[in-house]
Amino acid sequence: MKLHNFILFTALFLFFTGDALAQLTIYSGRSKALVDPIIAKFEEETGINVRIRFGGTTQLAVAIMEEGRRSPADVFWGQDGGALGALHNQGLLANLPEPILGGIPEGFKNNDRTWVATSGRARVLAYNERRVSQDNLPESIFDLTKPEWRGKVGWSPANASFQSFVTAMRKNLGEEQTRQWLTDMKNNGAVAYNNNNSIIQAIAAGEVELGITNHYYIERMRSENPTYTVNMTFFSDNDIGNLLNVAGVGVLNSSRNKENAERFIAFLLSDEIQRYFVNETFEYPVIYGMDDYDSKLIEALEVSPSMDLELLSDLDATLRLLRSVGLL
């Protein structure tokens, strides 16, 4: 009896998990908290039925590579230019139609037009206001290796956005200088955390005084709690520590719902959703012409080093470097 029921159960499951109903399947490295409201709006406006698989950006990119032609994904939405570049390099992404990309500045879309940024995120220096005075903050990411910061800096060598920053450093300043910086940081007792958020919590707890993280976590914390002791700043203009990375999307070559996928991307680039990113996630928009929002984007572009985001896909060499320095 029990066994019969079980077999029946299993058969029903198998039956109901087919993708007959979905008209658009998204693999999202962006968090559910952020994505769900956008999807709800999109479904409401277009009547398109969406399925989403959430996960880590790199993890989902790897899943798509393993799945190959059989991938159920129509759209890949990642937190990091590197992962999009990696999919592009494998020839897995389809060309995007020019009208979608019209208002997007160069640098926020790749040269072959297979992916486009949906929002910008900057690397910043986070610090504990109670413990460090603003006048004493380091000017450059290379100052973090000075003895005065010994054991006081938090970082996250295992984190994808940190690794993208290291890739950028390699491309801009060369292997040797990057290796030297990593080694100096390690010897200076930089404290490794598992992700950006853990760094910020450690700074708030007074475990470390400084940290290198993405910018938007801190803005969110401060908006929720005005007395929050963690603040942030950029290094001096064009310092590689101010890298402006992106979250972005691409449509898969293997997709059978390309039209819906493109509609979704156009939707993400609309004023409405761009405002949502700025207000809810404190990221930078990727389009101009939204009044008060422009100044933020202009500021971020000014302080960040110029960087071809496509080069960030060279992750393997970065991982080899991190391993050889003993950080991974």
């Binding site: 998990t17 993708d19 979905a22 399947t25 968090s31 559910k32 908290a33 399925r51 989403i52 698989r53 959430f54 996960g55 880590g56 993890q59 899943a63 159920p72 992700n195 958020n197 910020i200 919590q201 976590y217 969110r220 914390m221």
Partner: peptide
Amino acid sequence: FLLAPIGLDTLAVNVWSYSAEGMFAE
């Protein structure tokens, strides 16, 4: 995380995802 059918999202996955983003209340 790896084997769940698309769209399935369990309690544990929610706890982990929200807390990793620092959204502990959620």
